[in-house]
Design a protein around this nucleic acid. Structure first.
Lengths: 337, 337
DNA sequence: TTGTAGGCGTTATCAC
DNA sequence: GTGATAACGCCTACAA
């Protein structure tokens, strides 16, 4: 690959001049500029980003940390939004893998964490996707650092850190209000782990509505599990053994879909025998005709990226709360009292 | 962030010595080594990768190009395998976004393509995921370059390029043999675009089996579409209007699932009225009880990454053909003649 | 408008 | 074992 020096020699100018045209500075004679560009083309020259980064401290790449794996209905839509938006701004996306080993000297005891990895790869900013509030101290160093950061679904801010989250409480309120408007009073809840902020907000939304109508959360009907089909299936199987059981289930899509499968396996039909409302509106909900609260995941990725760009440019740091909407399908029925 | 110079000064040694311990070279006095490591820890020193890359020409990151979007049942499992394996080897994954604009000087007419982008970000190798054979010339420069490359599902090799692909022909053979063993003779085919290598191989597998049993591909029953639910749905609707229609459908999962939906919407039940076999065994097949030829996508990512590591280390360049297996569910029935 | 020289943080090649 | 010094490819004062 040709370097700036090669081009300079061929064009009979100094490399500063070449650098000027690379960076599109004014004050370059139009003729020399054209001459240089021509030579660049002929030699298929492209500036080396590492070298540029070294002097400018800009890499035009954004890092992303994901604690579990990418293989998740929710994440991948978010990531698509991120991908697209970052591309629009000329950035690439570095996915930090889960490295078991560290190259470079061992046993120094230095924790190779978010901050180190980020400065190691010299990313211009980072996106934190899929973390929960458990062990929140691990983010301390990061949010105190100068690294522009956007958290998705974790309410954390810092000097140059902010977050984006959906209006989970309002979404849950909509969902439960909907069920109640259909005549349901006995509502089971299938939610994610307690330390996850969105889950907390959703539960608090439920409670508000329950309270409003003089109902209360029945702990027997409240499950906190991982976001898996299997866990939803298990929870529902338990519920089905109860003598006093809910007429409707609200929860997060993955678990609710597991629950639907359990109900069907038990010979019940949906929505005739039992109603379901989900939260997230993942792609799979469509296939189950599941009524669900829709988070715009794509937009989430988009807005997260834009917020990050703004933090990088020191324009704006305010957290974003994304509105949700309700997608009605056919998983609920009207309950005559 | 502390630099190698800071550490050198604090330790009262030259930076060469510090560099030696960074790289774990022998020939460093154990005492000075320990002293230096201690100082590194105290100052939370971490070497700057850009600078290292600049002199070593190694970045410990692998680039990945994906022509469409990541949001796809098949890709995301492959990517998971890639992610995991790369992490195991100490590499991160750079996802090249689809950049509409180019930062850096404009109008030079230089094509900013695979090779340029890769050397721009100085990746150690690249993985090409989701490309087809259409306009195959665009890969010329890449496969002639020195950049270690692995293609997934495109049979292309080069000086330092190789590929991985599933044994699609054998998979199709299994599927069609299965249908025939159940008594089906009239088989409709719902496949992807003709220029996609796996699709070509699958079709050729079908043809072989057909031939063996004295059958032939009925062009009315052969569809080449995009990999979407909608296209499968449409194709099936057409098929359903025919007076002479197939008793079974074989095709790629996404389209087959669309077809199942179309059949159901038309009041048919599966498998009583019509049988289906898919190819890919994407996650969704499980939800439709679809019998499907399983490609091990995770392993595909894993093997692709390992092959790339080997190419980088100049150990091995041979293409990999991955075996497939058959996952029987309940979407087919035995047809009495 | 252009050139010179130093710097970004490393590694590598010599000497000592 | 260790230390200078050049080199990696680019950017940025400062001079001219």
């Amino acid at each position: 690959m040709a370097t700036i020096n090669d081009i300079a020699k061929l064009a009979n100018v100094s490399k500063s001049t070449v650098s000027r045209v690379i960076n599109n500075y004014p004050d370059v004679n139009e003729k020399t500029k054209q001459k240089i560009i021509k030579i660049m083309q002929e030699n298929n020259y492209w500036p080396n980003t590492m070298a540029r980064s070294l002097s400018t401290n800009k890499s035009y790449t954004i890092g992303m940390f994901v604690p579990t794996n990418l293989n998740n209905f929710f994440f991948r839509e978010v990531i698509q939004g991120i991908e697209y938006t970052l591309g629009k701004h000329g950035y690439d996306l570095l996915y930090f893998t889960h490295q078991k080993t560290m190259r470079f000297y061992m046993d120094t005891g230095i924790k190779f964490n978010f901050v180190e990895k980020s400065s190691d790869k010299n990313v211009d900013g980072i996106i934190m996707l899929g973390f929960n509030m458990k062990n929140i101290a691990r983010f301390n160093k990061l949010i105190k650092s100068k690294i522009p950061t956007v958290f998705i679904d974790v309410k954390l801010t810092g000097e140059r850190a902010s977050y984006i989250i959906s209006d989970n409480e309002k979404g849950a309120i909509k969902a439960v209000e909907y069920l109640i408007s259909l005549g349901h009073q006995k509502i089971g809840l299938l939610l994610g782990p307690e330390e996850v902020k969105p889950t907390q907000d959703r539960l608090s939304g439920c409670k508000k509505v329950f309270e409003k109508y003089g109902l209360q959360v029945k702990t027997d009907w409240l499950y906190h599990t991982e976001y898996t089909l299997e866990d939803g299936y298990k929870s529902m199987k338990e519920i089905l053994t109860m003598t006093d059981r809910p007429t409707a289930i609200f929860g997060e899509d993955m678990m609710v879909i597991g629950a639907i499968r359990a109900a069907r396996d038990a010979g019940l039909s949906v929505p005739e025998d039992i109603s379901f409302v989900g939260f997230d509106n993942i792609e799979l909900s469509y296939h189950y005709n599941l009524t669900s609260v829709n988070q715009d995941q794509y937009k989430m990725g988009e807005k997260a990226s834009e917020l990050l760009m703004k933090i990088i440019n020191e324009e704006e740091f305010n957290p974003i709360v994304l509105p949700v909407n309700f997608v009605e399908r056919t998983s609920c029925r009207y309950l005559r009292n």
